[in-house]
């Protein structure tokens, strides 16, 4: 199985690379090459940083057009998931529109970033009911594609799914055993 991790200059991919290797991935491509991405069996769309800046980077490589057309399982992590949504308040930017939800900033009175281990709840996927590691200042509101939620001041989407597209707000590569199980499930 060939796994492509989309590299568009938004964040450090070392942790993710090592986590995938721990999950047994041998054929791993960290790339922005559309051909490699199209031919991958699994595509991971990571990201850390500012939404508007990251969207600009995606557009420079025309990845904003490519990603929504992918047919294989795609996993967006953290900012990657947020960019798969319709709109983000961070830089007031339109995303890829794969998920209908909007991305909002956590309200005042909360410590931001939401940083650390928090519980994820899912009514349908039992394996998701666990602690996962989060680091983010913006959240995806609940929407019909929400598969699991988390609570921090407000209830927000921890996992989203639409057809072959999955997104997770937490960092599975840093979420201990639970995170490795989540990644392995995606790689199955």
């Amino acid at each position: 199985m060939m796994v492509a991790v989309i590299d568009y200059g938004a964040g450090n991919l070392t942790s993710l690379k090592y986590a995938l290797e721990r999950c047994g991935v041998v054929n791993l491509n960290i790339t922005s090459d559309p051909d490699v991405i199209l031919n991958a069996d699994r595509v991971i769309f990571p990201g850390v940083g500012h939404a508007a800046f990251a969207m600009q980077k995606l557009k420079q490589k025309s990845l904003d057009i490519l990603i929504p057309t992918l047919k294989q399982p795609v996993l967006g992590i953290c900012l990657g998931m947020q960019l798969m949504c319709a709109y983000s308040e961070e830089g007031e930017v339109h995303g890829l529109g794969i998920f209908e939800a909007k991305v909002r900033r956590f309200g005042s009175g909360l410590k931001v970033p939401h940083m650390g281990w928090n519980t994820v709840k899912s009514s349908t996927e039992l394996g998701l009911d666990n602690y996962f590691y989060f680091v983010h200042s913006y959240y995806v509101e609940s929407c019909p594609q929400t598969l699991a939620v988390c609570h921090y001041g407000t209830t927000f989407s921890a996992v989203l799914r639409h057809d072959n597209f999955t997104g997770c707000q937490f960092h599975p590569e840093k979420s201990g055993e639970a995170g490795e199980q989540f990644l392995k499930q995606f790689l199955l």
């Binding site: 070392t14 090592y18 986590a19 960092h171 840093k174």
Partner: peptide
């Protein structure tokens, strides 16, 4: 740091 990152799955 590289060795730790390879082995450890927490931040």
């Amino acid at each position: 740091v590289d060795k730790v990152a390879k082995a450890v799955n927490i931040p």
